[in-house]
Design a protein around this nucleic acid. Structure first.
Lengths: 212, 212
DNA sequence: GACAAGCTCACCCTATTTCGCTATTTTTTT
DNA sequence: AAAAAAATAGCGAAATAGGGTGAGCTTGTC
């Protein structure tokens, strides 16, 4: 029997979750609350295995609540359930110790599956969220490696430097004493070699990889 | 139609995957190989959307192959499929650029679902793997401090982050669930606050000052 | 209640970028 | 000498970015 406590400020949703849990064999609702007042006391008084946590709530946010739970009752798993797709929330939720992060568009069965996953030691995530997690992972803790500079030629690197300085094609052309069309050609080749489709992307990668 | 190329040294498994793909509507097998010889040439000659990659193979490993693919053909998504549950493999696979990591115990339908998820921009992961990823994330990550920030508001910072990721106005608008015109307005305000006149300049400065 | 700040959206117009193609000249490599 | 790579240049289209103006809505403060 998986005991679930709900924190969700939307009354309709909260009651729907409660009903879903109570009517599903193997699940039970250990409480349903609209905010995180007396969070720890409430959880101590009503033991549960998993907390289904909304992020946006009046008062203490779901993220802060997750931190508090993992600090005082670390054996409880927290499943974040929200509409937010933004990196900042995902990032903070993970760092706070969430055991899963699913979007609110999930189906009823999706919720039950997710809770089951958590109960089995897994961390269910909406695939789109998982993609963001992997990318955050890569960009945040990948040791910077010596980049091969994507095989850019000297002139291409000079052009790229001009772009990094915020120059337009025309200004870059003047600075390097070539025609605007030549700059265009080089830029096209740079994009192809770096597999990007805009100056912003190229500059972003160039700075990250310290090419320039 | 999702075109999938298979790299798997086990003959039986390889042929099973191939059969599964060819008999499932919406999927097609663009090739099935027992090793990564001529990896890039093979992929260039047989275009595909997703590579289903085994880790343990004679010669080049699936991790190295993933790195090579993301370097030369970054548009191709790599779905890792293996028996290894160890952190080291998971970590390296993510850093190599994998778009998903599933264990071999998955059901046939599980493979199709995972491929569909990847095709939709998600990153399917076995829940247990996801748990490991989250924990690796938490233990390996130290939040960094931002600096000045030019008095940008929260929304403006989010927009700027989208630009840094190389998104166009349209894609940034979609990601933040606002209209393109709203993005334009924010971008205009960002430029004014940062005293720049192009996205490249803004991104350049943002990265240099670690605003994002 | 008035006010400011922040977020949202729309319309219009111009400049720039992106990307397709082709092509010549110079330099380097084989 | 032949071949390959690099640099140069041009043309045209379609897409995107940049900038001006105005305006409605919400939230929080005085």
């Amino acid at each position: 029997m998986i005991r679930v406590t709900i924190f969700e400020d939307n009354k309709h949703l909260r009651e729907t979750f409660q009903l879903l849990l109570e009517t599903s064999p193997g699940y039970t609702c250990a409480g349903a609350w609209s905010n995180c007042n007396q969070l720890i006391k409430v959880l101590e008084a009503n033991p549960c295995d998993i907390v289904l946590m909304d992020i946006e709530m009046p008062g203490m946010s779901g993220i802060e609540a997750t931190k508090a739970i993992k600090k005082h009752l670390p054996e409880i798993n927290v499943l974040i359930q929200t509409v937010f797709f933004e990196d900042e929330y995902i990032f903070n939720a993970i760092c706070a110790g969430a055991s899963g992060y699913i979007l609110k568009s999930t189906t009823p069965q999706g919720y039950l599956d997710a809770l089951k996953d958590v109960s089995n030691g897994g961390s269910p995530m909406t695939p789109g969220i998982a993609r963001r997690v992997l990318e955050l992972f890569k960009t945040n803790l990948q040791p910077q490696q010596a980049s091969d500079e994507y095989g850019l030629t000297n002139q291409e690197k000079k052009i790229l430097q001009q772009l990094v300085q915020g120059k337009s094609y025309k200004l870059a052309a003047d600075a390097l004493f070539v025609s605007v069309d030549t700059v265009k050609t080089h830029v096209r080749n740079i994009y192809a070699k770096m597999h990007v489709h805009s100056g912003i992307e190229a500059v972003s990668i160039a700075l990250r990889d310290k090419i320039v």
